[in-house]
């Protein structure tokens, strides 16, 4: 794969990560609103949402490297009636616009909780529109490796897995940022404000309450991933020559990467379960930075490797 081809894994992985993270973040928000004041919860979610927005922006930017003449990319939406690519672009733009509006509301407008809630779910829906369109692009009869419902399932699972491991990173990153800023204030003013301490406490409570089910979601998604792979291998083994060739490449040349993918995936999810168990078992503040970053890194490596294999192994049927 060259740089132009790497633009596709970058775009697909980052978009799936952004959509999955927004889904998980909005679930965290819905759970937190039952226990805490909406204004306080929305204040905690500002930085994670900004990270999702940056991820989306990076994905959209990276996708242009796939084009010969990127300035003509807007023309691609004209075929929306017939082309899943056009629909993918439309959903991507919609997702980005809704996320931007949501970010603006969270940062600059207090209150309006219902609007924020609705806008968030609309963004999630648009995001899954992107993922659906994205998977439909690859359902080509000429591509035996891609042309199965497993592609759609794989993309959906990837978004859940990436989202479930990215949200802890964003929450911990935000907590760390707040703690350091608070410490800097203590250094300057001699004491932390009650509001700052309350903010830190709220963040810790949200992390404590959400890590368990986020880890469970990641475990379910990771558990389904090998089942999908087994099913795919089974399908390819009964397929045509192109399918057989793809299978040979997957289990031959690219076998180390396939192994790497699953080792990284289960190491990451295992680490996540361990972290969630540690968080649940104590009320003391924990230094979660290294563990959640490592978990996310391993899952990302696993998914990127999987996506690399997805693009590297396909063999066109016929000429």
């Amino acid at each position: 794969m060259n740089i132009r081809e790497w633009a596709l894994p970058v775009y697909t992985i980052l978009m799936q990560m952004a959509v999955g993270a927004l889904l998980m973040l909005w679930l965290v928000r819905a759970a937190s609103l039952r226990r805490h004041a909406p204004a306080a919860v929305d204040r905690v979610l500002r930085l994670p949402l900004a990270a999702i927005w940056i991820t989306t922006l990076t994905a959209v930017t990276a996708s242009h490297w796939h084009l010969s003449r990127f300035y003509l990319s807007p023309l691609a939406v004209l075929n929306w009636r017939t082309s899943w690519l056009s629909r993918e672009i439309i959903f991507t733009v919609l997702f980005f616009a809704l996320t931007t509006a949501l970010l603006w509301l969270l940062w600059f407008r207090d209150g309006r909780t219902r609007l924020k809630t609705a806008l968030g779910w609309a963004s999630v829906a648009a995001g899954y529109g992107v993922i659906y369109s994205m998977s439909r692009i690859y359902l080509l009869p000429s591509q035996a490796f891609w042309n199965t419902p497993l592609t759609l399932a794989g993309f959906l699972l990837a978004s859940i897995l990436l989202g479930a491991t990215a949200v802890p990173v964003f929450l911990v990153m935000d907590l760390k940022f707040t703690e350091v800023a608070c410490n800097a204030d203590v250094g300057r003013a001699g004491a932390a404000t009650d509001a700052a301490m309350a903010d830190i406490g709220l963040r810790q409570r949200i992390i404590r309450h959400s890590f368990g089910w986020l880890a469970a979601a990641a475990l379910v998604a990771a558990g389904l991933a090998p089942l999908l792979s087994v099913r795919l291998i089974e399908m390819l083994s009964h397929g045509d020559v192109a399918a057989q060739t793809s299978l040979a490449l997957l289990l031959g040349l690219y076998r180390p990467l396939l192994i790497l993918r699953f080792v990284a995936l289960f190491s990451g999810v295992g680490g996540f379960l361990l972290t969630a168990w540690r968080v649940r078992g104590t009320r003391m503040p924990l230094n979660l930075t290294n563990s959640v970053y490592l978990v996310c890194l391993l899952v990302l490596v696993a998914e990127i490797t999987g996506r690399f294999l997805f693009y590297a192994v396909h063999v066109r049927t016929g000429l």
């Binding site: 794969m1 790497w6 894994p9 970058v10 992985i13 980052l14 990560m17 930085l47 990270a51 940056i54 991820t55 990076t58 990173v169 964003f170 911990v172 990153m173 760390k176 940022f177 350091v180 800023a181 800097a184 990467l257 790497l260 930075t289 970053y293 996310c296 890194l297 990302l300 490596v301 990127i304 490797t305 690399f308 590297a312």
Partner: peptide, 24 residues
């Protein structure tokens, strides 16, 4: 400074891509 706490989180995805690319 506090803002540097955000850097590792934002570098995770690029780092993952580089590592994977290296692995390939």
């Amino acid at each position: 400074p506090a803002w540097t706490q955000l850097i590792p989180g934002l570098l995770l995805a690029p780092l993952a891509f580089v590592i994977t690319y290296a692995a390939t």
